[in-house]
Amino acid sequence: MKNFKTFLLKWPKFGIKEKRHHLPRHIHTLAEIEIDKIKICGVKGIILDLDNTIISEDDRYLSPYAEDWITQAKLAGLQFFILSNGKRRYRVKYWSHRLDIPALSPAKKPFPPAFRQAIAYMRFPAKHILVVGDSLHTDFMGALLSGCGFIQVATLPHPPRWWEKLAGKWVQIHYPSERELWDFDDAVGYKNF
């Protein structure tokens, strides 16, 4: 595992090399990404993860200000695409509709075909696309294999899956307990999808 962490620290910056290095590699919430800063760095499109990035996998928590941030980013001219490995397609359809963002599920991340589909939809070179997600083994590896930039957000609290109990501390950033969390109570809306 030490070699993997060393690899991450030395990970090449994709995209517009002289500017991309100004972007953070890790943040706590989606809303902490500075829209002006990513635009200055040449970002034109964003591939978003859904589970534990925007909404917790168990539908208990919503990332604070995430929807407002997405709206602001769209107004600033950024394009979006959601890639989710979630098996509950109705849930992904609900969020795609609610956020007005095209989505693909199950995306089978980190394998490149879904990333290539998102990149082709946005019609930008991969170097102008940023992947934002909570997991290094799916979101980061997919970004790396596709030539996109990457920012890792802290994973929203959720019941840990079996693999997270074993390797979660190496592939995810835990959400700080002192940070604000928003309860999500609109899961009943899923019934329409």
Rank of each mutant, 00 (worst) to 15 (best):
M1K: 11
F4L: 09
F4I: 10
T6V: 15
L8S: 04
L9Y: 05
K10C: 05
W11C: 12
E18T: 15
E18D: 14
K19Q: 14
P24W: 08
R25F: 08
H26D: 03
H28R: 13
T29I: 14
L30W: 04
I33A: 08
E34T: 14
D36G: 12
K39D: 10
I40H: 11
I40M: 09
D49G: 05
D49W: 04
D49Y: 04
D49S: 07
I54F: 05
I54W: 00
S56A: 11
D58C: 06
D58F: 04
D59M: 14
S63T: 13
D68F: 00
I70R: 07
K74P: 03
L75A: 14
L83M: 07
N85I: 05
K87N: 06
V92W: 01
K93W: 05
W95Y: 12
W95A: 07
H97W: 00
L99G: 01
L104K: 06
A107G: 08
P110F: 02
P110I: 01
P112G: 04
P112L: 10
A114F: 07
A118N: 01
A120E: 09
Y121W: 10
Y121H: 14
M122E: 00
F124L: 08
P125F: 05
P125A: 11
P125V: 10
A126E: 00
K127T: 04
H128W: 00
H128M: 05
L130W: 06
L130C: 09
D134Y: 03
S135A: 13
L136S: 07
L136T: 06
T138A: 07
D139T: 14
M141Q: 08
G142V: 02
G147A: 12
G149P: 00
I151R: 04
Q152H: 11
H158W: 05
H158M: 05
H158T: 12
H158S: 13
P159E: 04
W162I: 08
W163D: 00
E164W: 00
E164S: 05
K165M: 07
A167Y: 12
A167H: 13
K169W: 04
I173R: 14
I173Q: 12
Y175T: 03
P176E: 03
E178M: 05
E178Y: 08
E178S: 11
D183G: 15
D183V: 15
D185R: 11
Y190N: 03
